Computed example of a mutant assay.
Amino acid sequence: MKNVNILLVEGEPIFGADLKEQLQEMGYQVTGPFSEGERAITSLGESMPDLIVMDIQLTGEWDGVETARRILEKYKIPVIYLTSSADTDTFLKAKHTAPAAFMSKPFRTRDLKYTIELAIANQERWCKFNKQNQRNEQNFLLSDRLFIRTKDRMERIFFDEILWVEAEDYYCRVITKENSILLTQNLGKLSEVLENRPEFIRVHRSFIVNLKHVEQIRELSIHIGVKQIPISKSSREELMSRLKRI
């Protein structure tokens, strides 16, 4: 494991000194402890931590949650909150900053050690996943089109050309202005491909539509050209939320 640097922000100086010693015994490098959030943020210019252990009760103008919020506006660093006031209001306030963990004082050294290890492991997985997604996006250069497999070939379709897609037994059919193409996969599989494109919505268990081509909306159906497509009750609210209305 690489050398992990922990930023320690602790409002109680004696407890902070003892906690720093415990963290160093676990094998971590420690910056701090700082009892004020302002000083902790200033330290980021000298050394960027891999993880922050943050007491919620600090001595400066900001408490731990406000300090963490300001840090997280600029940096993606996991935060473990420590607090001697584990009331509901404190927890809900801390929850809004999406911390890696929330620990009540007093706690066992072993529990803190496990919590830190989990937070670091989750952060490493997130970074790896994010890098993989970036590589995938870079590799997928032709983002305006889709190549679909028919029985004997791969055929190009521009996303904007798709009017709707409908289920057909165990397959599905893609409808454009010029063509009707049967795909050798079900509607659920194609839905996974289209889910990140906001113009497409599954309005019924048997239909996905391209909102760019919707001409008319009724209570239980929509119209694309002369085609009337049913809308399920569960999909209608989402459909209406995506449309600009007057």
Rank of each mutant, 00 (worst) to 15 (best):
C172W: 04
G16N: 06
N3V: 14
I157S: 03
I229R: 01
K95H: 11
E25C: 02
L58H: 08
V209A: 04
D87S: 07
E36Y: 12
S235M: 09
Q24N: 07
R149C: 05
E61N: 13
E66G: 09
I52S: 00
D63G: 06
L146W: 13
E161W: 07
Q216R: 11
I14M: 10
V209C: 09
V226S: 14
E36C: 14
V165D: 09
I41W: 09
P230T: 04
S84E: 13
N122V: 00
Q138P: 12
M1S: 07
E66Q: 14
R156M: 14
P99V: 10
E199A: 05
K95Q: 14
L243R: 09
A68E: 06
P230W: 03
R173E: 15
L183C: 06
I116D: 01
M26E: 07
I175D: 02
R69C: 01
P230Q: 01
P49Y: 10
L194E: 09
S191V: 06
P99G: 07
V53Y: 02
T97N: 05
N196C: 03
S143I: 11
S84D: 12
K2A: 08
L243H: 03
Q123E: 12
A86P: 15
V4E: 02
M1I: 03
A98Q: 15
N196A: 11
T31K: 13
A68P: 00
F147D: 10
H213C: 10
M26S: 09
V226C: 04
L19G: 07
G64C: 03
I162G: 07
E195P: 00
E66A: 11
I77S: 06
T83V: 01
T176P: 12
L92I: 11
I231M: 13
A119S: 14
A100F: 12
G64W: 01
L8A: 04
K113L: 09
